[in-house]
Amino acid sequence: MTDRPYSGIWPVAPTPFHDDGSLDLDGMKRVLDCMIDQGVDGICILANFSEQFLISDAERETLTRLCLNHVAGRVPVIVTISHYATPIVVERARLARDLGAAIVMMMPPYHGALLKGTPEQTFEQFRAVGEVGIPIMLQDAPLSGVDLPVPLLVRMAREIEMMKLFKIECPQAAAKLRALIAEGGDLIEAPFDGEEAITLLADLDAGATGSMTSAMIPDLIGPVIRDFLAGNREAAIAGYARVLPAINHENRQCGFRSAKVAMVEGGVIGSAFCRHPIPPLHPDTAAMLLELLRPLDPLVLRWGK
């Protein structure tokens, strides 16, 4: 088993809406309770798979307060705080810290396709958040379009006391994780992957200690991680092979809409609504997702029944 302080399955909570597009706050509590019952090691809120780009600033604060109050320390909570403006990121970090978040997660500064932080600006933004005094998880995701070379990440880990956690979900994530761990050594306290665990085995083999997936089947992905870290490679490979068709369908066809479809089917939430301009899943795509999930008998499909 890894001796690193952060490991396991830390999925992203979806943000439920009513059919009219308003926040479903009671549904949000049920989502969190379901995730805890799925045996997660931690929960991330307000991330891309939480539809953070479709949520107002006022709603962000409402959700941050609600989630941290409702989880109430049962598992650690990561609050995503990404923004192009450094003062806003710092303000969000302070709020998360003051409300009891364990970690904040952020992408490098970017806005649209053309406004991208330079390596030095990225370093400065993370350093400013580090001064807030809460652990930071850097999210290296294609959505930002910002190149984050390994030497920059290692410099950040070396020079920013709170910057020791890394979620790597760029193309060829395993190669980057391997290089990051090789160069950063013990400075890299949490080498995680993401992207629905579509490259999980390769990333674990490269040294990842955890994964940030969706909330769809963390109860089935968690054992894969634990088996792998315990040296039970055969069991990990078999477990991963069993769930991979569902993960592939989620990753390639559904995205963040998948967890909501599964949670509606299982009575966790009442609606799979996503705000415009996100379209609903095609009924056939949703039907195949459920067809792939049912033989796996994940908790999400029976939690609310």
Rank of each mutant, 00 (worst) to 15 (best):
G266N: 08
E250L: 15
A246K: 07
G255Y: 11
S271I: 04
Q253H: 14
H249T: 07
V268W: 02
R242G: 01
F256V: 09
C254V: 01
C274Q: 11
S258A: 15
E250M: 04
A259R: 08
C274T: 13
F256W: 04
A272T: 06
L244V: 00
G267E: 02
Y240S: 02
G270A: 12
H249E: 03
Y240G: 02
S258L: 15
A272F: 09
V268G: 08
A241M: 12
A246T: 11
V264Q: 07
M263P: 08
I269N: 08
A262N: 06
C274P: 00
C274A: 15
A272N: 09
G270K: 08
N251W: 13
Q253M: 15
P245K: 09
L244Y: 07
C274Y: 15
G267P: 06
A241F: 04
A246H: 05
Y240R: 04
R252G: 06
E250S: 05
A238S: 10
N251C: 15
A259P: 05
R257S: 09
E265L: 12
N248W: 14
N251G: 06
L244I: 01
P245W: 12
F273V: 12
P245T: 13
A241H: 14
G270S: 11
I247T: 13
H249Q: 03
A238K: 11
Y240Q: 04
F256A: 01
A259C: 05
S271W: 01
Y240N: 07
V243G: 05
A238R: 12
Y240F: 12
I247C: 01
Q253A: 13
R242M: 05
A238E: 10
G266T: 02
G267F: 12
A241G: 14
A262L: 13
K260E: 11
H249L: 03
V268A: 10
F273H: 13
P245Y: 12
L244D: 10
V243L: 09
L244N: 08
E250Y: 15
V264K: 10
R252K: 07
V268K: 09
F256D: 03
A246D: 09
H249N: 00
I269E: 06
V243M: 10
A246F: 01
F273K: 13
I247F: 11
A246E: 03
V243H: 10
G270R: 06
L244T: 00
I247W: 13
G239Q: 10
E265Q: 13
N248A: 14
I247A: 03
F273E: 02
F273T: 11
A241S: 14
E265S: 13
A262E: 09
G266K: 06
V264E: 11
K260V: 03
Y240T: 01
S258Q: 09
N248M: 00
F256Q: 00
A241V: 00
H249Y: 12
A259M: 01
C274G: 11
M263A: 05
A272V: 05
I269K: 04
R242D: 03
G266C: 10
V261N: 01
V243T: 11
V268E: 02
A262P: 06
V264N: 07
A238L: 01
V264Y: 10
V243W: 10
A262Q: 12
H249D: 03
Q253N: 15
S258C: 11
